[in-house]
Design a protein around this nucleic acid. Sequence first.
DNA 1: TGTTGACCTTCCCATCGTGGGAAGGTGTAA
DNA 2: TTACACCTTCCCACGATGGGAAGGTCAACA
Lengths: 140, 140
Amino acid sequence: MERPLNIGQAAEHSGVSAKMIRHYESIGLLRPAARSSNTYRQYGEQDVHELRFIGRARSLGFSMKEIGELLSLWRDRQRPSGDVRQVAARHLSDLEAKLAEMQAMVTTLRKLIHACHGDERPDCPILEDLAGAPARRSLS
Amino acid sequence: MERPLNIGQAAEHSGVSAKMIRHYESIGLLRPAARSSNTYRQYGEQDVHELRFIGRARSLGFSMKEIGELLSLWRDRQRPSGDVRQVAARHLSDLEAKLAEMQAMVTTLRKLIHACHGDERPDCPILEDLAGAPARRSLS
DNA sequence: TGTTGACCTTCCCATCGTGGGAAGGTGTAA
DNA sequence: TTACACCTTCCCACGATGGGAAGGTCAACA
């Protein structure tokens, strides 16, 4: 018999900002919250659980769309775990692709920065690379 | 005595889309292009160089603001290479921070996906983690 | 009782880089 | 002439988040 929480308290308990809670509701990720007579949104224990779920999923980089899928799988106690894994696996391979791209950038930047003496002199391998290297992308 | 290029040709030669060329001009990254009598933008060799410079810098993940700094350093043949290196080093450390964050996500996701049998059965460590793990962020 | 301050509501705007597409002008070739 | 490919400007969209205005509500305290 817990008394309902205002949005600010739900935010505090879940780690999701009030601004974002309203936003998630507005895009249909969360069902519209119950309202008290004064039009304030009311949240219960289960709502806070859902908010934490969302926060955790965000911290793993899942998109809103994917979180919507995960949420409805979570709500369905009969879901096959294969469905969940598929969502996660797809996200993982997206992440891995971005990771590889960024790693290539970092590698190139480290080399360039290392090669640049970084003093008063004007000649600079960093600018030379940016200016020169025509099709040489961050890969290689 | 090369004849000037239309925006589409400049796009083709530089690898930067016409849409983006106009955008870069509109935000002041590029100086307004010359216009022919029919109001078409005209681009010369040097302009195409600048566009390629921008494209290469984008492919290394530099922001528009940083590219603006790099461009003006590039245009100034007297710049100290230290200024360039500082811009690049700041960007590198931003990248490294994001990289570490993503690597943590990937590590966690791999573990979860590995632990999930991913078949018909409904029990799923991925959902359990999202639902349960309260403050356990993607680190660790 | 009245006031104050902290909360809540909705609504619009900004970020960042990119693209889609409309409505209209221009240039070229058949 | 007619078609087609290009150009112009202008507005809108994405994804996730936040800022802030204008106004309503509630609790506590003098």
